Amino acid sequence: MPRQRISTETLIGAVRRHFGLSQQELSMILDVSKALIGHIEAGRRDLTSALHVRLFPLARHLPAPPLLPPDTEPLPATAPAPEAAPLEFRRKLCLHRAAGLRLELGKLTARAVYASRWQQALPTILADLEAAAALLPPVPEEQDLGASIRRWLPSFARRFKPSHAAQYHLLRLQAEAYETEAAALAELLARV
């Protein structure tokens, strides 16, 4: 079951949020029922002066409002240095994935280049084929190989579609994200 968001509007909620405590854990520290903690946090009951005195040793460590959620605060200076092995593994994984994406990008780029070359050359090629066909004796349409080739050649110019362009940009962004993450990990590893 996902954890519910802890309200920081009450002192109980602020203490729980700051120290990452569940209602059950705080109730054990304060020697009260979990239900009482829930009622006080929800605003259904008031914090008694006796409970306030028991809560004071924790509450005095609360920072001045506004209290930032833990995921927006930087690691405290007392946090240990990270292990290098998992960071190095992730860095290598990012580089490997980026390299794979770059290979796919290369294939799509080549496809776009070939389609572009066909688009540029196709009018001339078709005109040359028409001129050559005019010099040959007429043949029945079902036997005219040149006509079927002239109908088939334009498909080369359409081999890079809008869906391929979208795929190219998505792959490029993914590759850049992996490369950025790998660079940040390398920078972090240099400080470890």
Rank of each mutant, 00 (worst) to 15 (best):
P2I: 03
Q4M: 13
I6T: 06
L11A: 10
R16W: 04
G20W: 04
L21R: 00
L21Q: 03
S22Q: 01
Q23Y: 00
L26F: 08
M28W: 08
V32N: 04
S33W: 01
K34N: 15
A35P: 02
I37H: 03
I37S: 02
G38S: 13
H39Q: 07
E41P: 02
G43M: 06
G43N: 05
R44Q: 12
R45D: 03
R45Y: 12
D46C: 00
S49G: 00
S49P: 07
L51V: 05
H52W: 12
H52I: 09
V53M: 08
V53I: 12
R54I: 11
L55P: 07
L58W: 09
P63K: 07
L67A: 02
L68S: 14
P70Y: 08
P70C: 07
P70R: 10
T72Y: 00
T72I: 00
E73Q: 15
P74G: 05
L75T: 02
A79R: 11
A79V: 10
E83Y: 08
A84T: 14
A85F: 13
P86L: 00
L87D: 03
R90V: 07
K92M: 10
L93H: 07
L93Y: 05
C94S: 06
R97S: 06
A99K: 04
L101E: 09
R102I: 03
E104C: 09
E104L: 13
G106H: 04
K107H: 08
K107F: 03
K107E: 10
L108W: 02
A110Y: 09
A110K: 10
R111S: 10
A112S: 13
Y114H: 11
A115V: 12
A115I: 10
S116D: 15
S116V: 05
R117Q: 15
W118S: 02
L122I: 04
P123F: 10
I125V: 15
I125G: 04
I125A: 15
A127K: 12
E130Y: 04
A131E: 15
A132S: 07
A134L: 11
A134S: 14
A134E: 13
A134G: 06
L136G: 01
L136Q: 13
V139L: 07
P140G: 06
E141W: 02
Q143H: 14
G146S: 10
G146C: 06
A147V: 08
A147R: 13
R151D: 14
R151T: 11
L153A: 08
F156C: 07
F156K: 04
A157V: 05
A157I: 02
R158K: 15
R158I: 07
K161S: 15
K161E: 15
P162M: 10
H164D: 15
Y168R: 11
H169C: 05
L171N: 09
R172V: 08
R172D: 11
R172N: 14
L173N: 14
E176N: 13
A177M: 09
A177G: 02
E179F: 11
T180G: 09
E181L: 12
E181K: 08
A183M: 06
A183H: 06
A184G: 03
A184I: 01
E187S: 11
E187K: 09
E187P: 01
L188P: 01
R191V: 09
R191G: 03
